[in-house]
Design a binder for these strands. Structure first.
Lengths: 246, 246
DNA sequence: CTATAAGTGTGCTCAAAGTTACAGAGTTTG
DNA sequence: CAAACTCTGTAACTTTGAGCACACTTATAG
């Protein structure tokens, strides 16, 4: 599965209105973008990556920064025993922030990033990045904000791993997804969910089944349906211990 | 134990040579500092905090950034069941990077920071921070580097928690400490070590005892002595499963 | 020099998570 | 439709980590 990160298309970007279109739906950056920031984005190249492209891994050096325009990139850590754990996702309007480590520190980085869908992104060179960081207040704030937000998320990950039982972590994950999805079914297999949370397929199956018995959710092949928001909330708050062996 | 974060002393700083003295031993920042950066530091106030001062916690808002000059600050997360887990330490020449979250995002942050020793630090106001970030390449790079380094450390924490057995995590921690200490004994109680790694005193006692039986270390009240670097390395690489129940 | 506190060792029990193994259900493909 | 594959359910078992209880040791304070 080690598809190399070769861009499918690679074209200079058209004038500003095109750029606006690309970023139209992602206000996070737009609201902070100033002239310098736009200038940088104008110079950026739009690359397209196929789904499942490995965008960086253990030893790959990454000399560029990318702003995702379409699709999502999953950043994760894998273990030698075949387990893995999602650290976060980079979504449209967001920066592949871990590239920064490479960019700023020059250090390689023992994690992987992989396109989940087909991904389009604006690729910014190292020098352009530093240049704009110096000139554009908006871009600088945007980058800082991204970094500190990721930091905050990672701290939450840590505390979940250190202190929370797996069933709670799964319940919280479900809650967050259903929230995002406005209650619509989540398309994911148990094994994938295991990879999200750094655990095994069997544990996920067992715990989800338990939730189904508690009537929070309804399971079907490849997807999870919300049954009762309220019950799920209770479960995710730790009320009612697990019932697996009762 | 909720000593409020009240500075003990609070004086305007003397001219540049004094500043140089304060930071003399911490080249990380010095080598990047330029005129703007120095100007900011000149304006900073030197505060002193007693050991054990809680520097920020769950709901405290923090409107300043601090550069630690002397002493160390431990940043950790605690659980409702009385366990806790060290996220990282801020040492001389380093920034209290989590303040940045507050500073940049304005969000409060569910972690604690506490002075381990008496701490002196240069306190920089929010506006001065942003101002210098815009003007000083050196400072900006320094901040970015700090952030990305913390990010990298947190990722390692996550993968340790998710994938490694406790004995390995303890062995690695010991290794790192002995490295720092040039092989000299580490002064720490089992309970404190538990708080470092998010586990309990008993587990630490048991596992350390096991290591002692393996002749890596020698235990005594309140400190851990290195016995055989090589054996410890083997243990920390996962060779030789635990012997506790054999 | 005692009393008290802090730190350590350890056995027992239990719960959580992971592992192995396999059966069966649902999909896809030729 | 039959074969091959993917996904799910689950039982039995092992390992890891936590919690409790208590004995014992070392340090500190009065």
């Amino acid at each position: 599965m080690s598809t190399l990160a070769t861009p499918v298309a690679n074209l200079h970007i058209a004038p500003s209105d095109k750029l606006h279109d690309l970023l139209a739906d992602y206000p996070d950056l737009l609201e902070q973008a100033d002239a310098h920031c736009w200038a940088m984005l104008e110079m950026a190249k739009l690359h397209t990556f196929d789904a499942n492209t490995v965008m960086f891994s253990e030893n790959m050096e990454c000399k560029h920064l990318m702003l995702v325009v379409e699709g999502t990139v999953r950043v994760f850590k894998d273990s030698d025993e075949g387990r893995e754990m999602t650290l976060y996702r980079v979504e449209p309007g967001e920066l592949c922030i871990h590239n920064l480590n490479n960019l700023v520190n020059g250090m390689p980085y023992p994690i992987m990033a992989q396109a989940e869908t087909s991904v389009r992104g604006l690729v910014i060179s190292r020098t352009e990045f530093h240049n704009t960081m110096s000139k554009s207040d908006g871009f600088r704030n945007y980058v800082l904000r991204s970094l500190t937000e990721r930091l905050a998320n990672l701290v939450n990950l840590v505390s979940g791993l250190a202190f929370d039982r797996l069933d709670l972590r799964i319940a919280c994950w479900l809650q967050a997804q259903f929230e995002r999805n406005c209650g619509r079914a989540i398309a994911i297999t148990h094994s994938e969910l295991g990879h999200e949370l750094g655990t095994t397929r069997e544990m996920v199956s067992r715990i989800l089944k338990d939730f189904e018995h508690k009537r929070c959710i309804k399971l079907s092949r490849g997807s999870i349906h919300l049954n009762c928001k309220h019950t799920l909330k209770l479960v995710s708050q730790g009320k009612g211990k697990r019932t697996t062996r009762a």
